[in-house]
Design a protein around this nucleic acid. Sequence first.
DNA 1: CGCGGCTTGTGAAAAACTTCACGAATGTAG
DNA 2: CTACATTCGTGAAGTTTTTCACAAGCCGCG
Lengths: 210, 210
Amino acid sequence: MTRKIPDSTVRRLSHYLRSLEGFQEPGGTVSSEELAARGQTTAAQVRKDLSHFGSFGKRGLGYRVDELRAHLRSILGIDRRWRVALVGAGRIGLALFEYPAFRARGYDCVAIFDPDPEKVGTVRAGLVVHDPSGFEDAVRDLGIELVILAVPEGAAQEMAGRAVEAGVKGILNFAPIRLNVPPLVPVEDVNLVMELEALSFAITQAGHEE
Amino acid sequence: MTRKIPDSTVRRLSHYLRSLEGFQEPGGTVSSEELAARGQTTAAQVRKDLSHFGSFGKRGLGYRVDELRAHLRSILGIDRRWRVALVGAGRIGLALFEYPAFRARGYDCVAIFDPDPEKVGTVRAGLVVHDPSGFEDAVRDLGIELVILAVPEGAAQEMAGRAVEAGVKGILNFAPIRLNVPPLVPVEDVNLVMELEALSFAITQAGHEE
DNA sequence: CGCGGCTTGTGAAAAACTTCACGAATGTAG
DNA sequence: CTACATTCGTGAAGTTTTTCACAAGCCGCG
Ligand SMILES: NC(=O)c1ccc[n+]([C@@H]2O[C@H](COP(=O)([O-])OP(=O)(O)OC[C@H]3O[C@@H](n4cnc5c(N)ncnc54)[C@H](O)[C@@H]3O)[C@@H](O)[C@H]2O)c1
Ligand SMILES: NC(=O)c1ccc[n+]([C@@H]2O[C@H](COP(=O)([O-])OP(=O)(O)OC[C@H]3O[C@@H](n4cnc5c(N)ncnc54)[C@H](O)[C@@H]3O)[C@@H](O)[C@H]2O)c1
């Protein structure tokens, strides 16, 4: 049923899901038009996006809110819980792990690793910080599937390699480098400097256009 | 010379720039092939991206590293310094403002706003936290051009509106909502939950493909 | 100075993605 | 039961972005 789904489609699906959450009556229905209005896109785009995965609507009526929500959660793979480890208990990593919305969205924070002697043994975000030497064992014992990698640039590739080797299924990477991992293991990069640069580009560009 | 530059091109330019930073001899040259290798793209793509803005290379030789770096910085609008304010001195906002790479990249943190009485008056990231009531004056007096918006969902639209009204030129938004601002003011959204969902989608999908 | 090995810059072709437009369902009202 | 007003699902058309392929330019060397 599904072949190659555009990246942009996945992003929009995530948006649709969020739009549905903050919705009036869960028993109600929503049209592609309404959904598009909340997402900076078009009704046709909404329908096309969804059509990659099946037919979830009723003609003349729209989509049942609760039903579509369940389908989206299933499509995005969050109709289950994911076990997540934080590697690097620094500023950005802890900000994430202390953010309540993650748990609410299906991601369970189950372990934190950091070699800093001042952090090992202390409690952060409700978890004891462990030295990375025990990382591989923990992946196995705790069934860790996702890693949030928030370590300094120099340590990122090494820890990514160890994560993959240990059987981790995906990595959310904050280090500003391109990780070298097998193509079967998806990596999402978050590069905040790049976002700022996109902003200054857009501002600067606006002045240059005629 | 420039018309409509694809978003993906801007992201790649940012990448090229970073690749050039960590480069051996600044006097040396680099080919589109080498640049592509570090960026998960192709040589043709590199040349096409750059060709939107001019001809920076020498045939048979490649690009002078220092020269290309200067061009990229100019294209991205970071051949100058930007004055940035943080709105919302929470976990994610402070993680950013305490991150040294921003200053190094041309962004100066000049003010922090937060209404929390326990935070107002204290020093964070080297700056005194101010109540948002003084926001508009500060934008004018300090020449603030960019805002990092890291406030709770409910306050995001209001503060975005105030920022635009006060003359801010761009917003980096962490709140998981679509801000309603005039089209002339660029907004970059950072949505970390969406990144995680893209990850679980990719993992789940891998299982479904035949 | 002319030749040969490289590498850029760029139209043209291909691929990917978005928008259009309309037939087919579905519910409602009379 | 029929007419009607909706809204989906989807092939086809249109647009954007990427890839291809090659002439043109540059360097070094004999
Ligand atoms: N803070 C930001 O706003 C920001 C923005 C963009 C990118 N980043 C990137 O995110 C990463 C983390 O940034 P940060 O600001 O949180 O840094 P930080 O210095 O606050 O935290 C990094 C943590 O990683 C730990 N660490 C070092 N080696 C490790 C290892 N092998 N295994 C586990 N932990 C290890 C350190 O002890 C430290 O606690 C960096 O790569 C940085 O470039 C951060
Ligand atoms: N922490 C994360 O990892 C994370 C991840 C994704 C998204 N976000 C989003 O980022 C935003 C901030 O998250 P956080 O975790 O830093 O929250 P936080 O609660 O730690 O910080 C929010 C801060 O904003 C301040 N604030 C409230 N109203 C304000 C106003 N009108 N003007 C200025 N400041 C105001 C609060 O006093 C608080 O200090 C939220 O919208 C959140 O959804 C955070």
